[in-house]
């Protein structure tokens, strides 16, 4: 049918303008309500945590109940060890798993692997903790940093596999062909050209993965368990910030509550900084790739 309206009728319709405004307002309200809770969490944690934070918090061991002062130095140190252990196991599996799926990811094995990785990313972290408890802690008859690191790595690697696969797929096929056409063997093309080209984005994925496991509590509860002393060895129970926060938060003592808030503030700040650095890496890298 031949249109019976003129373009002027469309342009000047006030109804269209109103609808446009309404849509904009709805979207804005939704966007703001997504940000507001985060803002409140931030403010609350800062308000409760910052006053309890002092130098001793970073340098001393926890004190017994009733004795003021003390800190979470052992937990900080323990968290660092656990996250490092988790990363040492999780990053290589994650990155090379991602490389496999992106570069050789055809056929049944890849299909199954992709499916398993997808499932793993949604497995509740407490389940991972229980699993490690039954296969590592029970046979070795001790809670240990190894068990904790293993649990963290299981939470980390599916995430790194997925991000690595995704960013490698962003490298166009003709870049790989250019490498092959130079007489470079396939594995070197993947390592020295594809992976190298995507390295900033792969690093970002890794950092987000680290930020993710740094705040995990549930998988550590019955694997690394925690204690109130300096870490002795990797074969023994290992304190960690999230578990320490948890045990202080459920205690009945005000002094410990304050410490838990301080720990929460610290944990939040660390994870926030990690995320920020990861995002900055993305932004720094974008311009040169799109040009």
């Amino acid at each position: 049918m031949k249109p019976r309206h003129s373009y002027l009728m469309l342009e000047l319709s006030t109804e269209r303008k109103i609808r446009n405004w309404a849509a904009l307002i709805i979207i804005s309200v939704m966007a703001i309500s997504a940000i507001v809770p985060l803002f409140f969490v931030f403010v609350h944690v800062i308000k409760s945590g910052l006053p309890a934070l002092n130098w001793a918090f970073f340098t001393s061991l926890p004190t017994p109940v009733g004795q003021p002062g003390g800190g979470m130095a052992n937990s900080l140190w323990g968290s660092l060890i656990l996250v490092t252990l988790g990363s040492i196991i999780g990053i290589p599996i994650g990155v090379f798993g991602g490389v496999f799926l992106s570069e050789y990811g055809k056929g049944k094995i890849a299909f199954i692997m992709r499916f398993v990785v997808d499932l793993l990313t949604s497995v509740p972290s407490i389940v991972v903790g229980l699993y490690i408890y039954s296969v590592v802690v029970v046979p070795t008859k001790t809670f240990s940093a190894y068990a904790g690191g293993l649990a963290l790595s299981i939470l980390m690697f599916p995430f790194v596999v997925k991000t690595t696969e995704e960013v490698l797929r962003l490298i166009p096929q003709h870049i790989r062909e250019a490498g092959l056409a130079l007489g470079i063997p396939r594995w070197r093309v993947i390592l020295s050209i594809v992976l190298k080209g995507a390295l900033p984005s792969v690093t970002t994925g890794i950092m987000l993965g680290i930020a993710r496991i740094a705040g995990e509590t549930a998988p550590l509860l019955f694997t690394a368990f925690g204690n109130r002393f300096w870490p002795h060895g990797l074969g023994e129970p290992m304190p960690s910030l999230p578990v320490q926060i948890y045990s202080y938060a459920i205690s009945p003592f005000d002094e410990w509550h304050n410490q838990a808030w301080a720990g929460a503030f610290l944990l939040m700040t660390m994870v926030f900084c990690f995320n920020l650095v990861a995002r900055l890496l993305i932004f720094r890298d974008k311009p040169s790739q799109t040009l």
């Binding site: 490298i171 166009p172 003709h174 870049i175 062909e177 250019a178 490498g179 092959l180 056409a181 130079l182 007489g183 470079i184 063997p185 396939r186 050209i193 190298k196 080209g197 995507a198 390295l199 900033p200 040169s288 790739q289």
Partner: peptide, 21 residues
Amino acid sequence: PVEIRAKIGMVFQKPNPFPSM
């Protein structure tokens, strides 16, 4: 094929310099 490709160079339709290099 790696040996063959070292003897026969190729220039593609779209310029494709290696990224991050």
